[in-house]
Amino acid sequence: MFHALVAVKQVPDTTNIRIDPETGNLVREGVPAIMNPYDAHALAEAIRWKRQLGGKVTVVSMGPPNFVVTIREAIEMGADRGVLVSDRKFAGADTLATSYVLAETIQAIHEEDPIDVVFFGKQAIDGDTAQVGPGVAVRMGLPIVTYVVKIRELDLERRRIVAERKTERWTEVIELPLPALLTCEKEIAEIPFAPLPDLIRSLRYDPEMWTMSGPLEFDKGQVGVRGSPTIVFKMGTPPLPEAGEKIDAREVGVAEAVKQTFAKADAAGILDTVLGGAR
Protein backbone atom coordinates (compact mmCIF):
# COMPACT_ATOMS: atom_id res chain seq x y z
CA MET A 1 0.00 0.00 0.00
CA PHE A 2 1.19 3.43 -0.96
CA HIS A 3 1.34 6.18 1.64
CA ALA A 4 2.02 9.70 0.48
CA LEU A 5 2.31 12.73 2.69
CA VAL A 6 1.75 16.22 1.29
CA ALA A 7 2.66 19.46 3.06
CA VAL A 8 0.11 22.12 2.18
CA LYS A 9 0.10 25.76 3.12
CA GLN A 10 -2.69 28.30 2.98
CA VAL A 11 -1.65 31.56 1.35
CA PRO A 12 -3.28 34.85 0.45
CA ASP A 13 -4.09 35.00 -3.24
CA THR A 14 -1.24 37.34 -4.11
CA THR A 15 -2.80 38.36 -7.39
CA ASN A 16 -5.27 40.25 -5.21
CA ILE A 17 -2.90 41.79 -2.74
CA ARG A 18 -3.23 45.46 -1.94
CA ILE A 19 -1.37 47.84 0.24
CA ASP A 20 -3.21 50.46 2.24
CA PRO A 21 -2.03 53.72 0.66
CA GLU A 22 -2.05 55.49 4.01
CA THR A 23 -0.54 53.01 6.43
CA GLY A 24 1.54 51.06 3.95
CA ASN A 25 0.21 47.88 5.55
CA LEU A 26 -1.01 44.84 3.78
CA VAL A 27 -4.79 44.79 3.48
CA ARG A 28 -5.78 41.28 4.46
CA GLU A 29 -9.48 41.93 4.54
CA GLY A 30 -11.22 40.54 1.52
CA VAL A 31 -8.05 38.93 0.18
CA PRO A 32 -9.10 35.40 -0.55
CA ALA A 33 -7.07 32.64 1.05
CA ILE A 34 -6.21 29.72 -1.20
CA MET A 35 -4.23 26.54 -1.03
CA ASN A 36 -0.72 27.36 -2.23
CA PRO A 37 -1.02 26.50 -5.95
CA TYR A 38 2.19 24.46 -6.10
CA ASP A 39 1.00 22.39 -3.15
CA ALA A 40 -2.33 21.79 -4.86
CA HIS A 41 -0.54 20.37 -7.91
CA ALA A 42 1.72 18.25 -5.71
CA LEU A 43 -1.35 16.92 -3.93
CA ALA A 44 -3.03 16.15 -7.23
CA GLU A 45 -0.01 14.04 -8.20
CA ALA A 46 0.00 12.21 -4.85
CA ILE A 47 -3.67 11.40 -5.31
CA ARG A 48 -3.12 10.23 -8.86
CA TRP A 49 -0.56 7.68 -7.60
CA LYS A 50 -2.81 6.65 -4.75
CA ARG A 51 -5.57 5.88 -7.22
CA GLN A 52 -3.12 3.91 -9.34
CA LEU A 53 -1.36 1.95 -6.60
CA GLY A 54 -3.97 1.84 -3.85
CA GLY A 55 -3.19 3.36 -0.48
CA LYS A 56 -3.67 6.70 1.13
CA VAL A 57 -2.69 10.33 1.25
CA THR A 58 -2.13 12.32 4.42
CA VAL A 59 -1.83 16.10 4.39
CA VAL A 60 -0.07 18.20 7.00
CA SER A 61 -0.19 21.92 7.47
CA MET A 62 1.22 24.26 10.05
CA GLY A 63 -0.72 27.42 10.64
CA PRO A 64 -3.58 29.14 12.44
CA PRO A 65 -6.90 27.32 13.00
CA ASN A 66 -8.46 28.85 9.89
CA PHE A 67 -6.12 26.66 7.80
CA VAL A 68 -8.77 23.91 8.26
CA VAL A 69 -10.31 25.33 5.12
CA THR A 70 -7.25 24.30 3.18
CA ILE A 71 -7.13 20.88 4.81
CA ARG A 72 -10.77 20.39 3.87
CA GLU A 73 -9.93 21.36 0.33
CA ALA A 74 -7.24 18.68 0.35
CA ILE A 75 -9.80 16.14 1.54
CA GLU A 76 -12.10 17.29 -1.25
CA MET A 77 -9.34 16.59 -3.76
CA GLY A 78 -9.06 13.05 -2.40
CA ALA A 79 -6.75 13.11 0.62
CA ASP A 80 -7.71 10.68 3.36
CA ARG A 81 -6.36 12.27 6.48
CA GLY A 82 -5.49 15.82 7.51
CA VAL A 83 -3.34 17.02 10.38
CA LEU A 84 -3.25 20.69 11.31
CA VAL A 85 -0.37 21.65 13.56
CA SER A 86 -1.51 24.80 15.22
CA ASP A 87 -0.46 26.70 18.28
CA ARG A 88 -0.04 30.34 19.20
CA LYS A 89 3.58 29.55 20.02
CA PHE A 90 4.24 28.64 16.37
CA ALA A 91 3.44 32.17 15.22
CA GLY A 92 6.24 34.18 13.67
CA ALA A 93 8.12 31.12 12.45
CA ASP A 94 10.69 31.58 9.70
CA THR A 95 11.60 28.75 7.36
CA LEU A 96 13.97 27.13 9.87
CA ALA A 97 11.32 26.95 12.61
CA THR A 98 8.66 25.86 10.09
CA SER A 99 10.84 23.05 8.82
CA TYR A 100 11.39 21.91 12.43
CA VAL A 101 7.68 21.61 13.22
CA LEU A 102 6.86 19.98 9.89
CA ALA A 103 9.76 17.53 10.10
CA GLU A 104 8.81 16.45 13.65
CA THR A 105 5.20 16.00 12.62
CA ILE A 106 5.95 14.09 9.45
CA GLN A 107 8.44 11.89 11.32
CA ALA A 108 5.81 11.01 13.93
CA ILE A 109 3.29 10.10 11.24
CA HIS A 110 5.96 8.09 9.43
CA GLU A 111 6.76 6.07 12.55
CA GLU A 112 3.14 5.11 13.05
CA ASP A 113 2.32 4.58 9.38
CA PRO A 114 5.40 4.47 7.11
CA ILE A 115 5.46 7.05 4.33
CA ASP A 116 6.83 6.32 0.86
CA VAL A 117 6.93 9.78 -0.65
CA VAL A 118 6.75 13.22 0.94
CA PHE A 119 5.45 15.89 -1.45
CA PHE A 120 6.05 19.62 -1.13
CA GLY A 121 5.23 22.50 -3.40
CA LYS A 122 8.17 24.13 -5.14
CA GLN A 123 7.57 27.25 -3.08
CA ALA A 124 4.85 29.12 -1.25
CA ILE A 125 3.62 32.11 -3.25
CA ASP A 126 3.46 34.40 -0.21
CA GLY A 127 7.08 34.02 0.84
CA ASP A 128 8.55 32.63 -2.40
CA THR A 129 11.47 31.15 -0.48
CA ALA A 130 11.50 27.48 -1.60
CA GLN A 131 13.43 26.73 1.59
CA VAL A 132 11.05 24.65 3.67
CA GLY A 133 11.11 21.53 1.47
CA PRO A 134 14.91 21.16 1.47
CA GLY A 135 14.91 22.03 5.17
CA VAL A 136 12.54 19.20 6.04
CA ALA A 137 14.54 16.77 3.89
CA VAL A 138 17.73 17.64 5.76
CA ARG A 139 16.10 17.32 9.15
CA MET A 140 14.53 13.94 8.29
CA GLY A 141 17.60 12.70 6.46
CA LEU A 142 15.57 12.04 3.31
CA PRO A 143 16.93 12.23 -0.22
CA ILE A 144 15.33 15.12 -2.10
CA VAL A 145 14.58 16.23 -5.65
CA THR A 146 13.37 19.78 -6.15
CA TYR A 147 11.52 21.33 -9.11
CA VAL A 148 9.96 18.03 -10.11
CA VAL A 149 7.86 18.17 -13.27
CA LYS A 150 7.14 14.48 -13.62
CA ILE A 151 7.36 11.20 -11.77
CA ARG A 152 8.46 8.63 -14.30
CA GLU A 153 8.43 5.61 -12.08
CA LEU A 154 7.30 4.80 -8.59
CA ASP A 155 8.21 1.26 -7.65
CA LEU A 156 7.12 0.27 -4.16
CA GLU A 157 8.66 -3.19 -4.41
CA ARG A 158 12.11 -2.12 -5.48
CA ARG A 159 11.73 0.92 -3.24
CA ARG A 160 12.71 3.47 -5.83
CA ILE A 161 11.35 6.53 -7.56
CA VAL A 162 12.49 8.14 -10.81
CA ALA A 163 11.65 11.81 -11.17
CA GLU A 164 12.27 14.51 -13.76
CA ARG A 165 13.43 17.87 -12.56
CA LYS A 166 13.69 20.96 -14.69
CA THR A 167 16.58 23.38 -14.39
CA GLU A 168 17.59 26.37 -16.51
CA ARG A 169 19.82 24.12 -18.60
CA TRP A 170 18.08 20.82 -19.01
CA THR A 171 15.78 18.23 -17.53
CA GLU A 172 17.48 15.84 -15.13
CA VAL A 173 16.17 12.34 -14.66
CA ILE A 174 17.01 11.30 -11.12
CA GLU A 175 16.63 8.04 -9.28
CA LEU A 176 16.18 8.00 -5.51
CA PRO A 177 15.52 5.32 -2.94
CA LEU A 178 12.24 5.46 -0.99
CA PRO A 179 11.25 7.17 1.19
CA ALA A 180 12.09 10.38 -0.64
CA LEU A 181 10.98 14.00 -0.62
CA LEU A 182 9.96 15.90 -3.75
CA THR A 183 9.17 19.56 -4.27
CA CYS A 184 6.90 20.01 -7.25
CA GLU A 185 6.26 22.40 -10.11
CA LYS A 186 2.73 23.00 -11.38
CA GLU A 187 3.30 20.83 -14.46
CA ILE A 188 3.40 17.71 -12.32
CA ALA A 189 -0.36 17.15 -12.46
CA GLU A 190 -3.60 18.84 -13.34
CA ILE A 191 -5.92 19.61 -10.47
CA PRO A 192 -9.02 17.46 -10.89
CA PHE A 193 -12.57 18.62 -10.30
CA ALA A 194 -13.69 16.60 -7.30
CA PRO A 195 -16.83 14.48 -7.37
CA LEU A 196 -19.74 15.71 -5.28
CA PRO A 197 -19.53 12.93 -2.65
CA ASP A 198 -15.88 13.86 -1.98
CA LEU A 199 -16.82 17.51 -1.61
CA ILE A 200 -19.57 16.64 0.86
CA ARG A 201 -17.24 14.41 2.85
CA SER A 202 -14.66 17.21 2.99
CA LEU A 203 -17.20 19.75 4.24
CA ARG A 204 -17.99 17.46 7.15
CA TYR A 205 -14.34 16.61 7.83
CA ASP A 206 -12.62 17.86 10.96
CA PRO A 207 -8.85 17.60 10.78
CA GLU A 208 -6.75 16.40 13.69
CA MET A 209 -5.35 19.34 15.62
CA TRP A 210 -1.85 18.95 16.96
CA THR A 211 -0.62 21.59 19.39
CA MET A 212 2.24 22.27 21.79
CA SER A 213 0.37 20.25 24.39
CA GLY A 214 0.20 17.08 22.33
CA PRO A 215 0.27 14.53 20.93
CA LEU A 216 3.88 15.46 20.08
CA GLU A 217 6.37 17.20 22.26
CA PHE A 218 7.94 20.13 20.47
CA ASP A 219 11.05 21.84 21.76
CA LYS A 220 9.99 25.35 22.82
CA GLY A 221 13.30 26.80 21.73
CA GLN A 222 12.87 25.62 18.16
CA VAL A 223 9.36 26.86 17.33
CA GLY A 224 7.86 30.21 16.50
CA VAL A 225 9.77 33.41 17.06
CA ARG A 226 12.19 31.75 19.48
CA GLY A 227 13.14 29.12 16.95
CA SER A 228 13.60 31.63 14.14
CA PRO A 229 17.09 33.02 13.63
CA THR A 230 15.86 35.69 11.22
CA ILE A 231 13.76 38.69 12.15
CA VAL A 232 12.16 41.39 10.06
CA PHE A 233 14.17 44.49 10.81
CA LYS A 234 12.06 46.91 8.84
CA MET A 235 9.48 47.12 6.06
CA GLY A 236 9.03 49.79 3.48
CA THR A 237 7.79 50.51 0.05
CA PRO A 238 10.34 50.25 -2.72
CA PRO A 239 12.08 53.54 -3.49
CA LEU A 240 11.12 55.34 -6.68
CA PRO A 241 13.93 55.66 -9.18
CA GLU A 242 14.55 58.97 -10.88
CA ALA A 243 12.56 59.34 -14.06
CA GLY A 244 14.32 60.24 -17.27
CA GLU A 245 13.10 62.42 -20.07
CA LYS A 246 9.77 62.04 -21.81
CA ILE A 247 9.31 62.79 -25.50
CA ASP A 248 5.80 63.13 -26.80
CA ALA A 249 5.68 61.63 -30.28
CA ARG A 250 2.25 63.11 -30.80
CA GLU A 251 3.77 66.58 -30.50
CA VAL A 252 7.16 66.24 -32.16
CA GLY A 253 6.28 63.46 -34.60
CA VAL A 254 7.30 59.82 -34.47
CA ALA A 255 10.45 60.10 -36.58
CA GLU A 256 11.73 63.01 -34.51
CA ALA A 257 10.96 61.23 -31.23
CA VAL A 258 12.96 58.21 -32.36
CA LYS A 259 15.78 60.41 -33.57
CA GLN A 260 16.00 62.17 -30.22
CA THR A 261 15.85 58.85 -28.39
CA PHE A 262 18.70 57.42 -30.41
CA ALA A 263 20.70 60.60 -29.85
CA LYS A 264 20.31 60.14 -26.09
CA ALA A 265 21.31 56.51 -26.34
CA ASP A 266 24.33 57.55 -28.38
CA ALA A 267 25.27 60.15 -25.80
CA ALA A 268 25.14 57.47 -23.13
CA GLY A 269 27.41 55.34 -25.31
CA ILE A 270 24.78 52.63 -25.50
CA LEU A 271 23.78 52.37 -29.11
CA ASP A 272 27.28 52.11 -30.48
CA THR A 273 28.23 49.29 -28.14
CA VAL A 274 25.04 47.53 -28.94
CA LEU A 275 25.20 47.99 -32.68
CA GLY A 276 28.83 47.02 -32.56
CA GLY A 277 27.63 43.76 -31.08
CA ALA A 278 24.93 43.30 -33.71
CA ARG A 279 27.20 43.56 -36.67
Binding site: L26, G127, P229, T230, I231, F233, T237
Partner: peptide, 16 residues
Protein backbone atom coordinates in the same frame (compact mmCIF):
# COMPACT_ATOMS: atom_id res chain seq x y z
CA UNK B 1 10.55 41.93 -1.97
CA UNK B 2 7.61 40.52 -0.02
CA UNK B 3 3.91 40.16 -0.67
CA UNK B 4 4.03 40.17 -4.42
CA UNK B 5 6.73 42.83 -4.48
CA UNK B 6 4.53 45.51 -2.96
CA UNK B 7 6.68 45.75 0.12
CA UNK B 8 10.40 45.54 0.71
CA UNK B 9 11.35 43.75 3.89
CA UNK B 10 14.77 44.04 5.48
CA UNK B 11 15.67 40.90 7.33
CA UNK B 12 18.52 40.16 9.65
CA UNK B 13 19.93 37.19 11.47
CA UNK B 14 21.10 38.32 14.88
CA UNK B 15 22.76 35.35 16.52
CA UNK B 16 23.22 32.39 14.25
Amino acid sequence: PAFGGNIMATILCRQN
